[in-house]
Write a protein that binds this DNA or RNA. Structure first.
Lengths: 192, 192
DNA sequence: CCATTTTTAGCACCTGGTACTAAAATAAGT
DNA sequence: ACTTATTTTAGTACCAGGTGCTAAAAATGG
């Protein structure tokens, strides 16, 4: 209904802007918004090379889905509360609903692992450190809402190898115990 | 085509798991994968209260997939491409930038672990399964953009304990090898 | 006033479904 | 073995949100 600058070009600009701001609009929606026929919108879309709604949503979904699987954007899973480089560290992870199985509200193992692993890696006094081998036991299930406190200690250090022990607790109950063998990578190796 | 435990219930479990690992599958895709008719898949979906593809994608695109999900029984890290309940499974994870260390663009270990762990858990023929102990080796760094193919096999099954071996490869190079001891939890235990 | 551009209309067809009915196949009970 | 119940498959009508096409109507320009 709002045909401000009646003209093909400016309308197509509007179509493009509406759709980039809201890919959920159908041609019918746009036709109503811009006060033109559905066919006109279709023509505009084809000229602008904008795909139909379903395809747009599929693209958006593919993008979102990739990120949705990210455990965390941050370097560290959990909140770092103490760090003595090369010696020990503590981090806290509060279990939220999206870390749990829906039925049971028990945290998926890989979140606890991620907390422990990222803490162990953070401990290593090197620009880059990669996990080599790990041995982890999950001692008891952790439920939604619980605060997991992970404590990590460097047990041995031989050259560029760090042996890190991590124990995670909830209210002083051990929920995870693990050994992480981590390799610190020299700067020359990764910076080419 | 792989109808491991021919039965309505286990098939529906598979449907749920396939869709939670890959919401982009159409009913036709699923019918082909599971070797049943499209109508059967439709029935399964309605009984499981899983909406049609377009709606699923719309939800993913809207970003509410995490909250309003009726189907993520065993939210997989990676895309499920094959699953023989209680026997073996394959999933693929494409490493994106947010899974890597910024300097080196090497995947953080816990993403590879998460893929392997969630696949191992999905394999277990039970509503709920929890990881007990794990031993994982990271054989070589995985870089941003690489496709990690995880293959899992149930090695032994004693009562409710599953011993699962997972090997992840990139272009036929092993990048991860792991053993996962997983406990299937009886329904009576978690449903009170 | 005529030519060209732009807009609209109409039609057949498509995917990926829903909702329903009904037949066929399979499993279970006795 | 026979019957009942469950499960699976088939088929129909219908839907949204389109594509791709032809063609007419309306607006615009010189």
């Amino acid at each position: 209904m709002a045909r401000s600058h009646t003209g093909k070009l400016s309308r197509q600009q509007l179509v493009a802007r509406y759709l980039s701001g809201n890919p959920f609009l159908t041609d019918e929606d746009l036709a109503a918004i811009l006060g033109v026929s559905v066919q006109t919108i279709r023509l505009d879309r084809t000229e602008l090379h904008i795909p139909e709604k379903r395809e747009r949503l599929e693209q958006v979904a593919r993008g979102v889905y990739g990120q949705l699987r990210a455990l965390s954007e941050a370097d560290l899973v959990g909140e770092l509360v103490e760090l003595n480089m090369g010696r020990s560290g503590v981090s806290i992870l509060t279990i939220t609903e999206d870390m749990t199985f829906r039925h049971t509200r028990v945290a998926r193992g890989h979140y606890l692992f991620a907390q422990a692993n990222s803490l162990a890696v953070a401990l290593c006094d090197a620009e880059v450190a990669l996990t080599g081998t790990t041995k982890v036991s999950f001692r008891r299930p952790v439920f939604c809402g619980e605060k997991v406190v992970a404590r990590a200690f460097v047990r041995r250090k031989k050259g560029n190898k760090y042996m890190v022990r991590v124990a995670s607790r909830v209210n002083n109950e051990t929920v995870l115990e693990g050994k992480f063998l981590i390799f610190a990578i020299a700067e020359e190796v990764w910076r080419q």
